[in-house]
Amino acid sequence: MLDAPLLSVRNLTVAFPSLQHVLPAVRNVSFDIGREKVGIIGESGSGKSTTGRAIMRLHPAKTQITADRMEFQGRDLLALSERDMRAIRGHRISMILQDPKYSLNPVMSVGEQVAETAILHEKLSRRDARLRAMEMLEKVHIRDPERVMSLYPHEVSGGMGQRIMISMMLIAKPALIIADEPTSALDVSVRQQVLTILDELVTGNDMGLLFISHDLNLVRSFCDRVLIMYAGRVVEELRASELDQARHPYTQGLLEALPSLTEPKDRLAVLRRDPAWAQG
């Protein structure tokens, strides 16, 4: 990577005070993200979402977030005031969650929300913002934008909700997107469509993407690089195309445990967990 990374994280540790007796949920995690798609995979509870939320500083107030470095475009995210942080959230770094209903405003129509983004980011008049919203909904391949504009978040399907989220990012143009299981609730056909427009958004605008998922096949085919998390730690980092050459026994174990359509196995390998993986 020639340019300085968008995001640079060194020894990020996140501890929840309610869980004082256990190890921190995230421990000494380090990675960089440039203008590329970086995946995080790992089993449930391994700390993927906690990592994503820590970058946005979205944890409950008492959560202890420490890092030797957590820099976004040269700014120390942990040192920013809450006010400065708000200026970054949704503007410079955006988040897509599994269920778009939690990200969209439930009492505002889709059209109003997308238009609001255009008013905020492009200083458009209400009237122009509406046209802009329509245009963006078309860009994410919503067939009947006029009708969709008038819907409320609870009236749209999961796939449509993710398209709406992405349409707003086409306007806000954040430098970095954190997507936490964005397609896990979607059926295969819709998933491919949403991933295609997410890919277009990120690649076409030179953005960085942190893509959190438990789906190995998806991450390996969608991302450029992959971080593998186990018990709060990043145990291995690989180019997505080289996942098959993983050296860490946990990564190898995950791959062997996965039933494969193309290379069928009679029995699936059972993961033997080594307590040492959680250390370090």
Partner: peptide
């Protein structure tokens, strides 16, 4: 379509839906 989808991500050309 289901089989391809389960193998991972492939950009789809016609993304119009819903």
């Amino acid at each position: 379509l289901l089989r391809d989808g389960s193998l991972g991500y492939r950009p789809v050309s016609s993304t119009a839906a819903e």
